[in-house]
Amino acid sequence: MVDFGYKIAKDRQIDFDKNDRSIAQYVRKHEPTFNLCISCGTCAATCTARQFTDFSLRKYILLLRRGENKEVIENIHKCMLCGKCQLVCPMGVNTRGVIYRIMEMCI
């Protein structure tokens, strides 16, 4: 093996066919309002954790749907479960329920 001073760059493309979407499937099954998220971001705008960390429920729901789970698993525990997101969600997503279900799969 030769060291060329660089490596083949990792592909950033979401490979939907290969990704593991089991967490999203589990959450969807037990909390069907998971399907209703339209990524408007109201939850993230009001989120206590979001102001001080990278935590974004908007983003994590989306990433789980795509099977990009790593970032979600690493960060889901930052949620303080305060419930502000549920208060503001225009689609009626049971956000606390969604987070609990995600946590079940991440622990």
């Binding site: 060329f4 660089y6 760059a9 990792k10 592909d11």
Partner: peptide, 14 residues
């Protein structure tokens, strides 16, 4: 630029 070659080779690899 050598620093960019990893991205260059990744295209052919793909």
């Amino acid at each position: 630029v050598q620093a960019n070659r990893g991205y260059s080779i990744a295209c052919s690899h793909k």
